[in-house]
Design a protein around this nucleic acid. Structure first.
Lengths: 145, 145
DNA sequence: TTGTATGCAAATGGTTTGCACCTAT
DNA sequence: ATAGGTGCAAACCATTTGCATACAA
């Protein structure tokens, strides 16, 4: 199924739905877990080798801006992204083995934004990145040892 | 005062205490809050302009390895570091305005490492970066508005 | 003496950008 | 028609590394 039906509003912040962005959003939707831009670009390249990396980067930027895609972590110096349907404030756990992603509640008390304190500091923003093993990989990992 | 008395073991993982590393560790110790390598290199450069950036980077790597210095966040694409005397597992809050740093307790339950779960995931590692305003800057900020 | 540290410059590598061309709207 | 999107290549920039030299131990 297509996430970008013809003559339909784009699923993310882009203002024009070009064939390139249709492929990119389809490739993004097809991905299961967390992925790097490099990996996404490889998928896209398999569909249309003429699409350049910068186009993928620009599309990713647009998808992030609209919230259709989220940055869920980092690996080997490159950012990891994943589609996320959860609403509201949350974080993600990324499986270090297969890349699967799950949403996680925020461990911080954000009920009163800007009022959280630690040593008198007013915390205005935070980043929480969680990594580990998904249920399946945890089992596979245990069996191997 | 010197953090590297002559003929004394280096305060961090380096194996040889060269004059360059004495200056670098002194400059590091003189810093109050979080700083980037660029900023540290500027301080060091003021003391001895012949010291190259790579030397500073290598010294920072050594300081991190020994735990004498910690990575406390990121800003504008470059890493932020700070000396930290706290022991055990903890995180840091960095003042977005003046760079002051405070230690913060880990908001996650790490009492049973590797057993923390979220959606069945076994969380093996995490990163928590906190940013905000230190008490003084919070007041200054309020007065300005 | 000997292996670690330095300084320089060049390489890395993910990400961004300038520019001329193309196209969805 | 026209603003936004694309492709290419070059630019960026923090950080790393190769290499010949210097020096702490």
């Amino acid at each position: 199924m297509s996430y970008c039906a013809n003559h339909t509003a784009p699923p993310y912040g882009a203002q024009r739905m070009t064939p390139q962005r249709q492929l990119i959003s389809a490739a993004t939707a097809a991905r299961e877990g967390a992925f790097s831009v490099e990996a996404l670009a490889a998928d896209v390249g398999a569909l249309d080798a003429t699409i350049g990396v910068s186009t993928v980067y620009r599309a990713v930027t647009a998808m992030l801006a609209s919230g259709w895609l989220e940055r869920v972590g980092e690996r080997d110096g490159s950012a990891l992204f994943a589609r996320c349907t959860a609403g509201g404030h949350h974080h993600h756990v990324v499986c270090d083995r297969c890349g699967r992603v799950a949403t996680a509640e925020c461990p911080l008390d954000v009920s009163v934004p800007g009022a959280m304190q630690s040593d008198g500091f007013v915390i205005t923003r935070h980043e929480v990145m969680l990594y580990g093993l998904c249920p399946e990989c945890a089992i596979a990992d245990r069996d191997e040892e």
